[in-house]
Design a protein around this nucleic acid. Structure first.
Lengths: 95, 95, 95, 95
DNA sequence: GTGGTCTAGACCACC
DNA sequence: GTGGTCTAGACCACC
């Protein structure tokens, strides 16, 4: 996991983490149905609090890129590629 | 905390507070790794705005006497004794 | 603020709080543009942690009943009455 | 923590643990208001599942020897000495 | 003086 | 053994 947090940046840590996760997903490094490490493990690896990890994940939940399953884990959703399509469809209808 | 602010002085409040803090540190009253009260508590005790406390602390951060840790607190640094030398050096360079 | 939390209920505290807030709003007790107490004050009054208050408020943000303004406070939105209308409109279109 | 579990005994693990805890409390090794280790730490130390620890604790909650505080921990109650009386009463009533 | 973010650490609910 | 919720308490950014 070659990824560095910038604690002196104005951008919050959770946003930095969310951007990194988004790249992992959109680049295909984390493919559809990929299971993320547990929040506790991610917190240990990135040296942040679990709450900070949850904030990052929450951002991607709203974007529809991740899904949480209680007692099971957090997963990359199955419709990643459809997201941009849906957006352009809306744009098309509005245009 | 026997310390009085002079609100009618020309010297800004935050500088008065910063000087007082500097004395606490250099005199050893606040030893290395000492944890300051929270900004909000200091503001209440000294009857000033929280921003004033932050300005005072910022001055000592730049001087290297204090260090802030997000979510944890503000602490006296571990290299207090080296600071006076650095300060006099700056004075010398400026003089 | 005559409102009691049930700490032994299966329903989470933040949901109980969110329901109470929703009632305050929909009943008009908290009218449009009403400013809520600060998160810290609500936490003190309801004897819960500020994070629990934030979870409750978050639920009503998503429902569009509240809006947060950084540095200013949390307010009841101006389109409270339109919410049910919008819902019935959608129902109508689907029906 | 000199305490051994007998995994080949007919008595369930959680009961063995509950008995051990009861002894710790009644002997005063765990005095009033004593805070237990976290469930996860106890599970690691005793090499059992967290659910097993929770079952053991639940038994002592019902006996009034322990109390759980969400977000804070599990503690020995303050009325330990009154418990044995209550227990023998129940035994008597059942007998 | 408010909401925004972060730390540390615990029990809860579900698997 | 995961995510869900809760506690306590601090600095950050904006007002």
């Amino acid at each position: 996991m070659r990824f560095e947090l910038h604690r002196d940046h104005p951008q919050p840590l959770y946003q930095q983490i969310a951007e990194w996760m988004r790249q992992q997903i959109l680049s295909g490094t984390w493919p559809e149905h990929f299971k993320l490490q547990s929040e506790i493990d991610l917190a240990h690896e990135l040296q942040v609090n679990r709450g900070t990890i949850r904030n990052a994940i929450n951002a991607l939940l709203e974007a529809g890129l991740l899904i949480r399953k209680h007692g099971k884990g957090t997963f990359v959703t199955g419709q990643v590629l459809e997201q941009p399509l849906a957006s352009s469809l809306v744009t098309f209808l509005k245009g």
